[in-house]
Amino acid sequence: MASDGAGGTGRDRDAGGAFLYASVRDLLAARIRQDQLPPGALLKEAPISSQLGISRAPVRRALALLAQDGLVTPAAGQGYVVGRSDLPLRLSPRRLHEILTADTGDLDRTASWERIFSQVADAVTSCMPFGSFRIQEAELGDHYNVSRTVAREVLWRLMDRRLVEKNRKSHWIVGQLTARDLRDTLQMRRLLEPEALAMVAADRSLGGFDGLLRDIEVAIDSFPACGGAAVDRLEEAMFVDMFGGLRNSRLLGSIRRNQLSLLVARLFRRRFPIIDDGAALREYARILRHLGQGQIRQAQAVLHDHLSRIEALALARLRVLSLLEAPDMTPYMTPVYRGQDG
């Protein structure tokens, strides 16, 4: 969904950010800096991989990288020690467990899928206007250096967002974005988002929208010189971040599943002028001004009208996208032709 794709910004896309070894390295580095892993603590592949529930290879690579960075040094016997201590400090399995899994349980398999989810979602959504594609589980796993189990987990989550489906042959399929998808999801957005907007407003102070409003006003003042990337960011703040804190996770899930029109606009802006986005920015500003004044119903009405108005534009933009070549495929996606392996 657009929200996931839009969420796959810089940090997630950093080279290596999706790889398990990188997240192990990040976790250990953080624990060392926080002094939870004190100088001299002995770090060995086997206990760490056991505590994290992952294989030893990524742990081995993570430790080697930490050694390159000078955070750990090879121990006399096996493994590494934190810092440069000559007196290895052995941690009990229980203590190691507490240190590594404190807070969030960051590095079980769930963390693995989370780390690549936004990238896969971005790749999938970027292809949706251009046809139907099959995703190969094994190739997906290879591409991100994760197990097939993790790859499958990502695909199930994408299916939950209705970005992929399983066909009769149990193949994972990215279906082509159609005009009907756009019409239907915009209808859902009109039903869901005004309601969610009222919930968000109830949870925030009246001044809680001032920062975003200022950003939008700046963009309006410099439109269209503000550029497509600025409009992308503002739409994400307006429709993704805005609802991110909803306590009703079912409502949030439904909203995310139906924001295909954001995707079309974002893909369109990558290639074409933003001439028709000025009206939307002015509508966003009106919504936020109403919210700032506690005028919830008026804000809901403007949002509803906005979501009605953009339907014809979204359909027209989808037609324009049909002229473009499909983007370069990631190796785990292959085009599906009807009557072949679809």
Partner: peptide
Amino acid sequence: TIMPEHNYLVRRWHEFLQG
């Protein structure tokens, strides 16, 4: 016409031409 489902139609059309 370039109909509302043109995008979908065009992909099917290319499959037809190549099929």
